[in-house]
Each structure stands twice: as structure tokens, then as C-alpha cells.
Amino acid sequence: MILIAGIPHEPPVALAIAAAEESGAAYIVFDQRDHLSARLQLKLDAVAGWQGTLSTAAEVIDLQAIDGVYVRLMDERYLPDVAVLPPSTPERLRAARFHSLLYDWLNTASIRIASRPRAMLSNMSKTYQAGIIHRCGFGIPETLVTNDPDAVVDFVDRCAAEGDDVVYKSVSGTRSIVETFRVADRTRLSRIRWCPTQFQRKVRGTDVRVHVVGSRVFATRIESEATDYRYSGRQSGTDAKLTSIELEPRLQKACVALSAALDLPFTGIDLRLTPEGEAVCFEANPCPAYSYYQSRTGAPIAAALIRWLAEGER
């Protein structure tokens, strides 16, 4: 039995449900919006660890019957029924306790989980993740994290002398729009004194998003004039063009290895393939919004995810 945990109408969750339905796999959905009425009870077994039940108004789910879980839960603090409440209200506190216990189970259950909440945290720091990415054999962009305006100017000038732009973006998992560093930005560099900021030499090449599901690889080439293709319409006036491609076997293996090193059986890896033939990796997204890519290329990512969850290998 597969458990799909999230908001059912959210596109990645909706696609997973549709794929489970189509494949005939046994599945149940935990609608995260039911969290306040849901009950989670765990008991410590002397051999197997925590076991128990997840109960909603509709059903009682025996957690021992679950073979795989697709986790697409949002931060409970932003769920509509509690987001507007002050932090110390009983509903907010209960939401925190429920999710904490649910994450404990997801982090420890000896079943297929895409992906464990604990493993998803590596994306909280792009430079931390970059170390793992580099050890897996990918190139990483030349990066400077600094609070020193002079160091930025030196870095920008050196890259410019070699014909390259510099981009800046968040170090943390906080979503930010990647922007090219412009001459006008020099006047506000003193702001970085408060907090080290990430600058990267812009890598030339073709963007490729790779979704890894277990050992299966789905690659999408993205063509866009924008610095950040996710905001292509805003930055360049035209939408990005997405096409399914076949990665060379060496790169496929490296992507699967990276996914395993991060303990993320389902991940979205952002690559740029340079004209020199190097694969530079920017980050691995632990809970990818794959629906954007599947809807534009037809790649059967959701079907692969459901198949992986249903295989039942422990």
C-alpha cells in the first residue's frame, strides 16, 4: 500500500494520485488539510521500532501496511487553518506536535519513502549541498560567499576580465530569483556587511533538469534567454522551451549516485552542460515540483514514482 501525503489538488500530488489510479496500485491519500482532526499514535516495538496508526475521519491507516510514502507536505505553519492564528494557540501547538510526530515516523520507518524529511534538509544550504555534489563527481560553479564588498568587486572584475558575468542568489533554501550582478549593484554592496551573500561565476551552457526516481532518470533540456529560467517570462519576455533528452550513461549514473548520497530517492537535479562538455550541478531539489516538467514534456515521472513506491523492496 502506498501513502500519498500532501494537498491532493497540488499539481505534483494530483499527478501522483492519477498515476497510482492508472497503474492500479493500492494507495491511500492523507490530505494534509485534515491535520487537526487526524490522529497519529505510535507504540515502540522491541524489535521493529515504532508502529501505529494514522486515523482520519474517513479511515484508520495501519502504518505497518504501508510499503511506500510520497511525501509532499507543506510547512504546517502556513496551512490555511492555522496560519492566521497566533503561535501559541492550541491549534498551532497541536499542528506542530502532529507534524513533528509524523516526521519522526517518516524519518524512521523501514519502508520506501520519497523522501525522508530529515534528508530533505540538505537543501537548506546550497554550499553544504555543493560539497556533496562535488564529491559525486559533478562540477560546481566558482562561488564566493562573503560579507566583504571589496572581495565581491575583485571577484566580479576577475570574472569580467575572463569574459564572464557573476550572478547572486540565496545560500539557503529560501527561494530567490537568480540575478546577474550589474554595475549599479556596486552602490548597494555595503548591505552585505550584515550577512554573507552568495556570488557565482555565471556558467555558460544548456540548462538540464534531471529527475531521479530510484535508479530511473528523466532529463529535460531547457532553452531560455533568462538568467533564471523559472522566471523566463518576467526576465526575458518569452517562456522557456522544455524538451525531453537522453543523458549519456556516465551522467545518468552520476545523478543516481548523487541522489543516493543525499538519501533522496526522488530528486530534481539542476545541471548546466557546458560547451566544454562538463556537467556543472547547481543543486538537488529534495521535493521537486516535477509536474511543471512532466506537463511540458510528457515524461512519465509520476508513473515511475508510483512504481518505485509500490515495488516494496525494503
Binding site: S125, T127, Y128, S172, T174, P196
Partner: peptide, 17 residues
């Protein structure tokens, strides 16, 4: 909140390197 997340990410990346 943004700066705290960035600072944490920097420290994690630096220690990890």
C-alpha cells in the same frame, strides 16, 4: 528571517567544507 536562514546556510556550508 531571511538573513537568519542565510547565516545558518553559510555556517552549515562553511563547516561542511
Amino acid at each position: 528571517a531571511y538573513a537568519e536562514a542565510e547565516l545558518h546556510a553559510f555556517l552549515l556550508g562553511w563547516l561542511g567544507s
